[in-house]
Amino acid sequence: MERIFDILKKPAVYYSLLIAVLAVVGGAAWAVYETQIPPEQPIDFPHNIHVGLQIQCLYCHPGAWKQASAGLPTQDKCWACHQQLTKYWDPENPVPLNQWPPELQKLAAYVENDEPIPWVPVAIVPDHVHFKHRPHIAAGVACQDCHGDMSSVTVAENPQLMNMGWCITCHQQKTVDDPVKREKLISCETCHY
């Protein structure tokens, strides 16, 4: 045992160990940070404009009030509105496609080619978590409580780390007066199965 401590006292060993520890911790921190960078989307979708136009979240993510998954809009949903915008489709004075904003040109291309838009979900949980939107919406949780204020971002990003501590904290806060409900909301098998 003594000898091990002696070895540790050598500066070379000491520093290399320190560097190794720092590398591991730094790597982990970097990995966590990495998960928080919003992924690149096929279209730089401006949430702020759409929310600013008073479009309800559920219009484009209708699964949230009925299903586990909120869903990402399909191109026909986008196109249903965008093909009516008089700004570009004014019969008197249509704007040629190549003069549209570049992101809308991308959408038009997906529609033209009849290809699905490969959206990348941003607010995700690991595979061993079974998150359901419906009960949250039914319990009166507003979209922005978890997803942040979408009127201030363009491409979706996560306002916070979506980890278990965050889930449980909220579940506990909301069920202070209801022990039965609390039991259910902090029980393992409610989310992990």
Partner: peptide, 11 residues
């Protein structure tokens, strides 16, 4: 599990 009274395995 206190809620469902099941024996659960948390993977």
């Amino acid at each position: 599990s206190q809620a469902e009274k099941l024996n659960v395995q948390v993977y």
